[in-house]
Design a binder for these strands. Sequence first.
DNA 1: TGACAGTCATAGATTACTTCA
DNA 2: GATGAAGTAATCTATGACTGT
Length: 223
Amino acid sequence: MAMRKMRKCKTTNQRRFSDEQIKSLESMFETETRLEPRKKLQLARELGLQPRQVAIWFQNKRARWKSKQIERDYTILRANYSNLASRFEALKKEKQALLVQLQKLNDIIQKPKEQGQCYAQMKPANSMDSESENGEDDVKGKAEVKPISPSMERSEHILGVLSDDDSSIKAEYFGLEDNEPALMNFVEQADDSLNSAEDWGAFESDDLLDQSGSGYQWWDFWS
DNA sequence: TGACAGTCATAGATTACTTCA
DNA sequence: GATGAAGTAATCTATGACTGT
């Protein structure tokens, strides 16, 4: 340790390089971060420094530049991450809203069906003049769902007058061929898939964060 | 032999606190 | 007692140099 201090004392009188020396070293570093031995000798001669001092200066410069670069990269990554996280939250909220709408539609589809079965037991099937007694439920059903798109307005129109005999209309609307179980399966599957935490997790990791196809991994950024 | 990571030693700048007129 | 200038110790930052790999 004492040796070390002695050696340092020798160079203490010119501890810091002059502005002119720094300027030259900096401009050289901008063009090339590693000096060839010949250039090192030449630069040292020009600046009145030992070649060893020039080498050490470049070494320190590289190391400190690198750590600053890492800090910059980290800042960028952090910003990207927070941007992604806020997009994720927004999508999550959108998904919840869609689920609520889906559930309401599902209820509306179920309701006329149950009522139709009830009528079948109590009245002849051709009875359409039941609005005075049961129209209220239909109106109620309508009022619960706010149309959010042309297609939903259409559903409101159709569902308001649906009965068990309206399968042709249903088929037209849903593009199905007289196949209610399939329709309900569709609705339930969609619901389940969106409600499942596992599936959502899969969506998160696979679709949002993984830029699949490119083969690029986030940690590649550092190399 | 040269590059690198890690570290030390020190100068200079900044900050916090104290003293005194 | 309140206030501003001067002094000083503590802390931080930048940088040249060294060591071990």
